[in-house]
Amino acid sequence: MKAKHQRLLTLLVGIVGLGIAVFLVSSAFRDNLVFFYTPSDLSHKKIHPEQRLRMGGLVEQNSLRQDGQTVSFAITDRKNILKVNYKGLLPDLFREGQGVVVEGHLSESGLFQAETVLAKHDENYMPKEVADKLKEKGLWQDDR
């Protein structure tokens, strides 16, 4: 075997080994790498009250109540629903039916006390006229 073939073999074996290692580690940590939990996750997970966590989902239609800076709304993943209280400014993209991620803690009454609200954008880009036309024709897909 020539020296360069040996180098090639060593490197390839090393890279494949490393790839497998990283794959195993990341699949082992899959549960811990999530950026946010869904309301369903929270319903069957034992969460200590006052533990800081992030929860994400869609803002339930017609659930937004605004009184000055105090805001309350509900987050749904279409299976479970969770009410959220928040005091502060909402980001531009926040609206009903849109994805959001809230950071805060679950109070004992089952209400989510949010300290931060982040809007989650979807991967659709289109001009306003096109979006309106799609809605008119009933081709709009809100569910993914």
């Binding site: 790498l33 950026f35 400014l89 909402l90 980001p91 531009d92 993209l93 926040f94 931060t116 609200v117 982040l118 809007a119 989650k120 954008h121």
Partner: peptide, 12 residues
């Protein structure tokens, strides 16, 4: 900042 409401998050 204007869209999400934050400059940075530690997501994947």
């Amino acid at each position: 900042k204007p869209m999400w409401g934050t400059y940075w998050v530690w997501d994947a």
